[in-house]
């Protein structure tokens, strides 16, 4: 296997690992020297104020944004770049797909395809990527929709689903490809408050079933209850990270204290 170096052995256990990842948009440095490790079955929540770089981090880990410096490994394989005669070059889209295959992603705005029914949204990749027949894909897709409690909405187009239902279909769509790690990019931020619960419930269940997850979120309650580890980011850096209990009860940095205070003020009335 190419790209093997002396640190391979320590990477062996991480599903996702980032080393010294930096990212700039023009002159603006949005991520600075991020190190990150995700072990199997671990649930990590990333919190922080808007513009702290937490979504960008997740998008770099998925290579939806190419990172500028550092390395991202999925299953010990470098994502997005390869070594070509001592120079780092972008890999083909196909290679990106191969390395990224264990990752499923759920977006803030669902991004269901409006010209496809709920079931077709779930089965599209099963058929195009996994080569399943329509019948096999439908069966698999229905099982996925059942898992998120939406089997009865299979024939509906996204426009006739509520936000919560859309997000659950999006989760089913990602799960259909049997990912070993799920990335959630603010999965409940676009939802009406009364619809947040149903989505979090599905995520709770996933975590309980041992799914490895990275969740960028503003849901402190979810983070406190479900996360094994919470990462607090601000201005493109990881400011603090640790068990939720420790982080929420005894924040070390002033920034996190401020952030938690602001959050509490807003949520107590």
């Amino acid at each position: 296997m190419p790209m093997v170096d002396s640190t391979t052995s320590t990477r062996q256990k991480a599903i996702v690992e980032a080393q010294g990842v930096s990212k700039q948009f023009g002159d603006l440095e949005v991520l600075t020297d991020i190190d990150f490790r995700l072990s199997p079955s671990e649930v990590v929540c990333v919190i922080g104020p808007s513009g702290s770089g937490k979504s960008t981090l997740l998008r770099c880990l998925a290579f939806l944004e190419p990172y500028d410096h550092g390395s991202v490994y999925i299953d010990s394989q470098l994502l997005g770049y390869e070594d070509s005669g001592g120079k780092r070059v972008r890999t083909s889209e196909k290679r990106v797909d191969e390395v990224r295959a264990p990752v499923g992603m759920v977006f803030q705005h669902f991004h269901l395809w409006p010209h496809r029914t709920a079931l077709e949204n779930v089965t599209e990749a099963l058929r195009l990527v996994n080569g399943l027949s329509r019948r096999e894909a439908d069966e698999e897709g229905m099982a996925m929709l059942e898992q998120v409690g939406l089997a009865d909405r299979a024939g509906h187009f996204p426009e006739s689903l509520s936000g919560g239902q859309k997000q659950r279909v999006a989760i089913a769509r990602a799960l259909a490809m049997k990912p070993r790690v799920m990335f959630f990019d603010e999965p409940t931020s676009a939802l009406d408050p009364e619809l947040v619960g149903e989505v979090l419930e599905v995520m709770n269940k996933l975590a309980a079933d041992g799914m490895t997850m990275v969740v960028v979120t503003h849901e402190m309650g979810f983070a406190a209850k479900v996360a094994d580890r919470v990462i607090f980011m601000d201005q493109g850096r990881v400011v603090e990270s640790g068990a939720p209990d420790k982080l929420f009860r005894h924040p070390q940095s002033e920034r996190l204290q401020q952030f938690l205070n602001t959050w509490r003020e807003r949520h107590i009335d």
């Binding site: 939806l64 990224r100 992603m105 991004h111 599209e124 990602a174």
Partner: peptide, 15 residues
């Protein structure tokens, strides 16, 4: 929307 394409790419659907 760009997100529709990103969602597809994340599922391994070819360009």
């Amino acid at each position: 929307p760009k997100g529709h394409l990103e969602a597809a790419r994340m599922l391994g659907i070819s360009p």
